[in-house]
C-alpha cells in the first residue's frame, strides 16, 4: 500500500544494531546477523525479503527469544513498544510476551498445530492462558475469531481436528490463534509459501484486513519479492546477515538503490519479460564461513570495485527520495550513486 504514514508514530518493535553469533562445532564464532536495525511502527506492515540463509528467519526468532542454543545475541538489542529489552528477558517473562504482545505464525501450519486436539480447543486454550477467560467465553471468542479470519461454518469447525482441514484453513486457524490476544505485533514467517496461488491471495488480503480493522502491526518475512510487494508499507532487503536496503515499498521496488535489490527484481520471471533473457545474478550466496572483510555481495556484483572487497559498506541514507530510505553500498557515493542500476 502506497501512501501509508511514514514511521515516526508509535513504535511497537525496534531492533538496534543486532548481532547474532553462531557457535560452530569447531569453536568458531560465526556472525549470523550483523548490524541489523529495524523499526516497526503501530499499524505498519513491514516486509523482510531475502533468499535462503540471509538471516530473515533467525531475526524473527530472536525477537521472540526462540533462538536455538547455538546462536546467541552478541551485540545490540531488541526492544518492544515500552522499550523493554526483549533480548535480556528470561523465559518466564518472555512467555508473557509471546502470544500476547507479539505473536507469530509459521510457514507450515500443519506442524504448528497439535494433531491430537481439535482446532477450536487449541485456540480457546491460548485465549484462556493469556486472558484468564472462562471456558464459555473462550469458546465464544474462538468462534468469533474463526468467523473473522474467514473460516467457513465456524461452530462446526471448532470441533474438527487439524488433519481434516486444508492447508489454507489451517493457516487461518493459526492466524486466528495468533491474533486472539490482540497482539501489538504479528510476525508472519513465509505465511503463504506452502499454499496454493488462489489461497495465497486470500491470506494476504486477510493480513491487510487485520491491519485495517485492529491496527495490528505486521512483520512479514518472505523470499518472494513479487508476492509481498503489494502488501507492505516498508521493505527491508536482507543479504548474508545484513540489511542492504530499506525504505518505502513502492520506492524500493520502483527505484532499487542496492545492486542486489536491482538484480533480484530483474531476475523475476514477470509477464513483462516474456521473450527476453532474464537477468540473473551469477553465483550464489556465500556460506557463513566464506564471508570476507568486504561487502558480502561483491563477488556477485557487476559494479564491484576494489573498495567493495576490502571494506563493508554501512547502511546510509539515499539522497533524493521522498521517504526516508537507506542502502548499504559503496557506490552510493556523494553524487547520489547508481540510480538506474539493473534497469
Amino acid at each position: 500500500m502506497v501512501g501509508a504514514k511514514p514511521s515516526g508514530g508509535e513504535t511497537v518493535l525496534e531492533v538496534r544494531d543486532l548481532r547474532l553469533e553462531l557457535s560452530a562445532k569447531d569453536g568458531a564464532r560465526l556472525p549470523v546477523l550483523e548490524e541489523v536495525s529495524l523499526k516497526v511502527g503501530r499499524g505498519e506492515i513491514v516486509g523482510i525479503v531475502g533468499e535462503s540463509g540471509c538471516g530473515k528467519s533467525v531475526l524473527s526468532l530472536s525477537v521472540l527469544g526462540l533462538l536455538p542454543p547455538s546462536i546467541r545475541v552478541a551485540g545490540g538489542g531488541i526492544y518492544n513498544g515500552e522499550r523493554k529489552e526483549l533480548h535480556r528477558l528470561g523465559e518466564k517473562s518472555l512467555q508473557r510476551i509471546r502470544g500476547k504482545e507479539i505473536a507469530m505464525i509459521f510457514q507450515d501450519p500443519m506442524t504448528s498445530l497439535n494433531p491430537g486436539m481439535t482446532v477450536g480447543k487449541q485456540v480457546a486454550e491460548a485465549i484462556r492462558l493469556h486472558t484468564g477467560a472462562s471456558k464459555r467465553e473462550a469458546e465464544e471468542k474462538t468462534v468469533g475469531l474463526f468467523r473473522k479470519v474467514g473460516l467457513p461454518r465456524p461452530e462446526t469447525l471448532y470441533h474438527e481436528y487439524p488433519h481434516r482441514l486444508s492447508g489454507g484453513m489451517r493457516q487461518r486457524v493459526m492466524i486466528a490463534m495468533a491474533v486472539s490476544c490482540q497482539p501489538d505485533l504479528l510476525i508472519a514467517d513465509e505465511p503463504t509459501t506452502a499454499l496454493d496461488v488462489t489461497i495465497q491471495a486470500q491470506i494476504l488480503k486477510l493480513m491487510k484486513t487485520l491491519r485495517e480493522e485492529d491496527g495490528t502491526s505486521i512483520l512479514l518475512i518472505s523470499h518472494d519479492l513479487g508476492l509481498i510487494s503489494g502488501v507492505c508499507d516498508r521493505i527491508a532487503v536482507m543479504y548474508a546477515g545484513r540489511i542492504v536496503e530499506e525504505g518505502a515499498a513502492a520506492e524500493v521496488l520502483r527505484h532499487p538503490a542496492h545492486p542486489y535489490t536491482a538484480g533480484l527484481l530483474a531476475s523475476l520471471a514477470l509477464p513483462s519479460k516474456k521473450g527476453t533473457r532474464l537477468h540473473s545474478i551469477p553465483g550464489s550466496v556465500p556460506a557463513l564461513r566464506e564471508r570476507g572483510p568486504g561487502c558480502a555481495f561483491a563477488s556477485r556484483c557487476p559494479y564491484a570495485a576494489d573498495r567493495c572487497l576490502a571494506e563493508k559498506p554501512a547502511l546510509r541514507g539515499v539522497a533524493g527520495s521522498a521517504f526516508p530510505r537507506s542502502a548499504a553500498c559503496h557506490l552510493l557515493g556523494e553524487e547520489g550513486g547508481l540510480a538506474n542500476v539493473g534497469s
Binding site: E51, S52, H223, D224, L225, G263, L264, S267, L268, A269, R277, L278, H279, S280, I281, P282, S284, V285
Partner: peptide
C-alpha cells in the same frame, strides 16, 4: 532462490 531460478530458466 529467486536469483538462481533465473539462471536455471535461462
Amino acid at each position: 532462490d529467486v536469483s538462481v531460478q533465473a539462471q536455471i530458466l535461462n
